[in-house]
Each structure stands twice: as C-alpha cells, then as structure tokens.
Amino acid sequence: MRVVIAEDSAILREGLAQLLALRGVVVAAAVQDAAALLDAVATHRPDAAVIDIRLPPGHTDEGLRAAVTLRRDHPDTGILIFSQYVETAYADRLFGEGFAGVGYLLKERVVDIAEFTDALERVAAGGTALDPEVVGRLFKASRRAQALERLTPRERDVLALMAEGRSNRSVAAALTVTERAVEKHIAGIFTKLDLPPSDTEHRRVLAVLRYLETAGRTDA
C-alpha cells in the first residue's frame, strides 16, 4: 500500500511516516501543506492519502478542501482525514459523491497504530473508517433528520458501528447480541433508507453516506 501524508507538524508527520513504514506501508511523500498534497497525489498516485484538516497557509480548513478536490480529481485514491477537529463544512462534498473510500479519525482517539493501519487499509480498498464521535456530529448536522428518526435506537447503534468499518461479527460483539440479530437490524436499515439489493454498490457504505450526503456546518 502506497500513501501520501499531509500534516503541518514536522514531528507528527515524520513520526507517522516512520510508524507506517515499520508496518510495511510505503510512504510516497510526507508534506506540510495543501498545495504540496495535491502535487504529491498527482505525482505518486497513492492508494490513500492521510490528511490533517488545518494546513498552511491559513490553518483553517485547507486540508479538508484539498480532500474534496482529491475526491473529484483522483477518485481511486482513498481519503483518510486525521485531525483533532470535527468539521462538517464540506461534508456534503466529501461524503456525498456516491462512492466509498473515505475515513475520518480523531487524533486523540487513535491509541493503536495497528488499528490506524487497519483503517487506512479499509479506506484504500474502498471501505469506510469513521470515528463514532465524528458520525455523531455529522448526524446532528444532517438535514435528513427525518430519515434518522425512522431508525430505532438499536439500528442507529448498528449504523454507527458499521461506519467504523466493523464486520457483522464485530458489531454483534460490541452490542452483545447475535450476528443474526445484527443482520436483521441491517436489513431494517437498508429498507428504511431505501437501499435495495444491488450487484454493483456497497450498501453498507451507502447506508452511512445517505446520512452524510447533505450534512451542514457546525462549530468544530
């Protein structure tokens, strides 16, 4: 797996690059600003890009805006937002393109490099890796509140765990229920979100994106 890292802190940037390299990930480039990120992805065509939200020169949302550009120009490159902040300003464009390969993790909640690498691999393979806190904030920001209200509390719990990229077995273990119960909840989610069976689309991903596609802005 080849990745590009965009992080303004030199210590974090180099530290993350070294940790990923130790786990067999090829770090094609590690840059500090959004312009260099766009150039690096265009040059190296990585499997995924790890992007901080607040990059030079403004240290506001340059990384997130660059991620939106990459989703448009390089849809085969997975995007993993890795930040201290939950920012929903561009969620409609980042999550609402109708294809997978996106993740959003909070720095302070990642305590295991193996879990981080696993999330990065899922995103590179076209899956999702969303922190539960991020999902919660995006759900609150979503204009599709009525769709959310159609789900039972348990279905919402299942959907939040699905957003983390968990398998049915992992969801069952987290909720202390059977895999069969999880399957029933997922079937209910698909039905309420009007996601019929498809041979070409990943319904687990679309179930999450359905909520996030029109998210608005909230204070980070």
Rank of each mutant, 00 (worst) to 15 (best):
A147Y: 13
P56D: 09
V177K: 09
E183F: 04
L55D: 06
F116S: 03
V41K: 12
R23Y: 13
A141H: 11
D112W: 01
A35K: 15
G15D: 08
L22P: 02
L64D: 15
G188Q: 07
T77I: 04
A141Q: 13
A89E: 12
R72H: 06
D199Y: 05
S170E: 15
R156G: 14
A173Y: 05
G63M: 02
R180N: 11
D73A: 10
E213T: 15
R109N: 14
Q84M: 11
V25L: 04
R204A: 06
A35E: 15
G101F: 02
L80T: 14
G188A: 07
R71P: 15
R210T: 11
R156F: 01
A21E: 13
R71G: 12
L212R: 02
A220Y: 04
R204E: 06
H74Y: 14
V3M: 04
G188V: 05
A174C: 08
R217K: 12
G136F: 00
K140F: 10
E164M: 11
D73W: 00
I189P: 09
A67P: 05
V182W: 06
P153W: 06
Q18T: 05
A49Y: 01
A30V: 14
G103K: 01
L195G: 06
L64S: 15
V50Q: 01
L175V: 06
A6T: 09
L37P: 04
Q32D: 06
A100P: 01
T152E: 12
I189M: 10
Y211I: 09
P197A: 13
T43K: 15
R150A: 04
A30E: 06
T178E: 04
V208L: 05
I113Y: 12
R45C: 07
E14I: 03
A42G: 08
A42F: 04
E97G: 12
T218A: 07
L12M: 09
K184H: 09
E87R: 14
G216Q: 07
L138K: 05
D33L: 09
D73C: 01
L20T: 03
H59I: 05
H74L: 13
T152A: 13
L37C: 07
A145K: 14
A160K: 06
A187W: 03
D199A: 10
Y211A: 05
R109M: 03
F190R: 15
V4K: 03
V110E: 13
R217L: 13
L106A: 09
P196N: 12
P132A: 11
V182M: 09
